[in-house]
């Protein structure tokens, strides 16, 4: 029933129906005021918590839910996950205090489509709503760039062959053993453990423990 009564989104010419979730009345009022002049946009309901939103959205069947990420009780990420199950057709836009790529990633993984920092609601909110209503994704370029940089961290490994001992030491390190534990297990000195690790790291072209352990996991040396 919801889908039949709902107007076509964005490009179809109908108005985009919005549902607003934020625990601060003043923010809700501000967002309403901000969107008031747009003929394309219509706020059809609001809630002050994730729990309340979940009980009300089904009846309202909005096209887009604007979701504060810092909600008391059920937090924004949890609410996003639950909303994806309750009203899978609706697109989710986060209104967030946080300008961190981790939040963008977390929200997208929870099923969100758009991300707008609260500091730039004025300039980005409408763009974000229209974009997700068209089926696109939206996040500030700066945050996306940071996210991309983090994901690109770690150069490809050099293709080399480690010796048996080097492999053993790397495996033990990836299993989280201390040098002392490794030295004991392999019957060599801690100094030798360090030497094997250095050689392996040099061959693989990695500098950090994080990269070395990741390599071991990708190679299936540890679970």
């Amino acid at each position: 029933m919801a889908s039949t009564t709902r107007p076509a989104e964005g490009a179809g010419g109908g108005r985009v129906r919005l549902f607003l979730v934020d625990d601060h009345a003043i923010v809700r009022a501000g967002v309403r005021a901000l969107l008031a002049h747009h003929d394309m946009l219509e706020v059809v309901g609001e809630a002050e918590s994730g729990e309340e939103a979940l009980t009300r959205v089904v009846a309202v069947a909005p096209d887009v839910v604007l979701l504060d990420l810092s909600l008391p009780g059920m937090n924004g990420i949890e609410t996003a996950r639950a909303l994806r199950k309750t009203i899978p057709a609706a697109r989710l836009v986060a209104l967030s205090m946080h300008e961190d790529p981790e939040y963008v990633q977390g929200f997208l993984e929870a099923g969100g489509s758009g991300y707008v920092p609260k500091s730039s609601l004025e300039t980005q909110l409408v763009d974000a709503i229209l974009a997700v209503a068209r089926g696109e994704y939206y996040a500030p370029a700066k945050l996306l760039a940071e996210l991309a940089r983090e994901m690109a961290q770690g150069d490809p490994y050099k293709h080399v062959k480690l010796t048996g001992r080097e492999l053993e030491v790397v495996t033990q390190i990836a299993e989280g053993n201390t040098y002392r534990e490794i030295a004991e297990a392999l019957g060599i000195s801690e100094k030798t453990v360090a030497t094997y690790r250095e050689r392996a790291s040099e061959k693989l072209g990695v500098r950090s423990r994080a990269e070395l352990v990741r390599w071991a996991i990708e190679r299936g040396l540890v679970g």
Binding site: L69, S70, N75, G76, D100, E102, Y103, G106, E146
Partner: peptide, 18 residues
């Protein structure tokens, strides 16, 4: 950091590392 509560240890460590 609220990121610890909302997104967990990995996100909080990445945030702190950055």
């Amino acid at each position: 950091p609220s990121v610890l509560d909302e997104l967990g240890l990995e996100a909080a460590l990445r945030r702190f590392a950055r």
